[in-house]
Computed example of a mutant assay.
Amino acid sequence: MKSSPHPAPRSTGRLRPLIATAPFLAALAATVVVYVSVSVRLPDPLATHFGADGRADGFTSPQGFLTGCLAVLLVLGIGFGLPALREPSAGTPWLIAGGFATAAALGYLICLTLLGNAGAPDGAAVRLPMWQMAVALGLAVPAGALGRLLAGPAPRPTEQAEGEAPRLDLPGATAAGWSRTISSPPLVALGVLVCGGGLVSILGGEVLTGVMLLLTGAVAVAVTSVRVTVDRRGLTLAPTLLSAFRIRFRRIAPDRVAEATSRRIDVFAEFGGWGYRVRPERSGLVLRSGDGLVLRLTGGRRFMVTVDDAATAAALLNTYADRARTRQGG
Rank of each mutant, 00 (worst) to 15 (best):
R250G: 12
G138E: 01
T224V: 02
R279H: 14
S289H: 01
A8T: 04
P157W: 14
E206N: 07
V211Y: 05
R296A: 02
L208W: 12
W131F: 12
R233L: 01
D309H: 00
F24H: 09
T236H: 09
I182L: 04
S184L: 05
L241M: 14
R227V: 10
V34S: 13
G299S: 14
G329S: 05
D231K: 03
I19A: 05
S3E: 09
H6L: 07
G81D: 09
F100T: 03
V32P: 13
Y276G: 01
V226H: 04
R256H: 14
S179F: 00
L106P: 04
R16Q: 11
R10W: 08
L139N: 02
G119M: 11
P45Q: 09
G197K: 03
V32M: 15
V307N: 01
L66T: 02
P166H: 04
R302W: 03
S61M: 11
F59I: 10
Q63F: 08
F249K: 04
V267E: 00
R232M: 03
A56G: 12
S184Q: 06
S184A: 13
T158Q: 15
L42M: 01
D231V: 06
M130L: 15
L295M: 07
G123T: 14
T261V: 06
V38H: 09
L213R: 00
W178H: 14
V278D: 07
P23Q: 04
A104H: 08
G329K: 04
T48Q: 03
R156L: 15
T102R: 08
S283D: 14
V32Y: 10
D308Q: 03
R10Q: 12
R148Q: 09
D309A: 04
P157T: 10
T21V: 15
T261G: 04
N117Y: 15
A56D: 13
W94M: 12
P166S: 03
A103N: 13
L235A: 07
T113Q: 12
A71N: 02
A269D: 13
R246E: 04
S3Q: 10
R127I: 09
E159K: 02
G138H: 04
